[in-house]
């Protein structure tokens, strides 16, 4: 393959299409007569196709154009997660419960009408139709905040879940986000609300949501405020 007569064919350059018409003709003439170079041609063609798998953007360097707003935003998020980790302590952080809260609170907020549905500390959110097999229930009361959470996790097709939760006894005025956390630590927000200023103790809010997570992967459901504090978490 290193012999000069083979190299004259410049099979690699031929594959890359950078030869002049005359060189192409010469390369093809050599390829016709040389099984070894034809084999190489096949291999390099395959490789050439694989090159196409790499995105051309992979070869851009440096920071994005247009300033570092994106950097600042990312740093703020990381700072937020760091402080949350300190609040939550080691075990949750290790389980990876800290996660992406990239969405601003705006996304899922609906203003806090804490409807009267009883001091829902038991089974959550009754539904009209019978729940499918595999549905899981969980509930918990946080010893520190006093907030309670009851969650029903319903398996859906294609590896996602519907979630119905009742939450209550959360201090008024808090912006709450609902998260579901996978066993691998992946976390997805599936809802959020603002606790009304006149929220009545003992009353619960009922919320539904969906998350792209298989029911078998669901580890816990939690309510987190916009400071990143976990108000209540229930293992599923």
């Amino acid at each position: 393959m290193t012999a000069p007569e083979h190299d004259k064919a410049l099979v690699g350059a031929y594959v890359l299409g950078v030869l002049s018409p005359e060189e192409n003709t010469a390369a093809e003439a050599h390829l016709d007569s040389c099984p070894e170079c034809r084999r190489e041609l096949d291999e390099l063609r395959m490789l050439h196709d694989e090159l196409g798998e790499v995105p051309p953007e992979a070869f851009l360097d440096g920071p994005p154009d247009g300033g570092d707003l994106l950097l600042q935003r990312t740093l703020r998020e990381v700072r937020g997660i760091s402080s949350r980790q300190r609040v939550w302590g080691g075990s949750l952080a290790a389980a990876g419960l800290v996660a992406v809260v990239a969405l601003s609170v705006g996304a899922g907020v609906f203003v806090g009408n804490q409807t009267a549905s009883g001091p829902g500390n038991g089974v959550a959110a009754p539904t009209a139709s019978p729940l499918p097999p595999g549905t899981k229930h969980a509930s918990n009361v946080d010893a520190t905040t006093g907030a309670h959470l009851a969650a029903t996790v319903i398996p859906a097709n294609n590896g996602w879940v519907k979630l119905q939760v009742q939450a209550g006894d959360i201090a008024p005025g808090q912006r709450c986000k609902l998260f579901v956390t996978s066993k691998a630590g992946k976390q997805e927000q599936f809802g959020g609300w603002l606790v009304g200023a006149n929220a009545t103790p003992g009353k619960s809010i009922t919320l539904d949501g969906t998350a792209l997570m298989s029911i078998n992967d669901v580890a816990s459901v939690s309510v987190v405020n916009d400071q990143g504090q976990v108000l209540v978490n229930t293992p599923v």
Partner: peptide, 11 residues
């Protein structure tokens, strides 16, 4: 960000 930001954002 400084090294890969442009590549990532373009992609």
């Amino acid at each position: 960000y400084e090294e890969h930001g442009r590549s990532l954002l373009a992609y």
